[in-house]
Design a protein around this nucleic acid. Structure first.
Length: 108
DNA sequence: ACGTTGACCTATA
DNA sequence: GTATAGGCCAACG
């Protein structure tokens, strides 16, 4: 496994409860800005990882749960987020800008 | 080996 | 303000 994916998992694992981040933010934090799709691929491989990766806390820039289908069921992602206190309506994160957790600013 | 696809983002019209 | 185009790099067929 490349260090890139490990870094992604590391960052995602550091996301606090009830907070969310975006692929682009992680990509920029890792220095691979513009290649945010790779972050998505990393999440795809996250299911194979033995360690649990809270991929449900990672959404797109619009706060839309685009990768909900990649979980067991589309409902799983919403359930997990709502369980952490995140309000989800129409597969969109409410107050996304306020719940946004930027590793560049928080983790630094 | 080549072409297509993809859990995206930025930029221009 | 939305709509469309381009770019990015790895995995799949």
């Amino acid at each position: 496994m490349s260090d890139f994916y490990q870094q992604v998992y590391e960052v995602v694992r550091q996301i606090p409860i009830g907070r969310v981040t975006s692929y682009g933010a992680i990509a920029r934090y890792l220095g691979t800005a513009g290649s945010s799709r790779m972050v998505g691929w990393a999440m795809n491989l996250a299911h194979h990882q033995s360690v649990y990766v809270p991929a449900h806390r990672v959404v797109n820039r619009n706060g839309l749960l685009t990768g909900k289908v990649h979980f067991g069921s589309p409902e799983v992602m919403r359930e997990l987020l709502e369980n952490e206190g995140v309000v989800i309506v129409n597969d969109c994160v409410i107050d996304f800008t306020r719940l946004f957790w930027d590793p560049m600013n928080e983790l630094l």
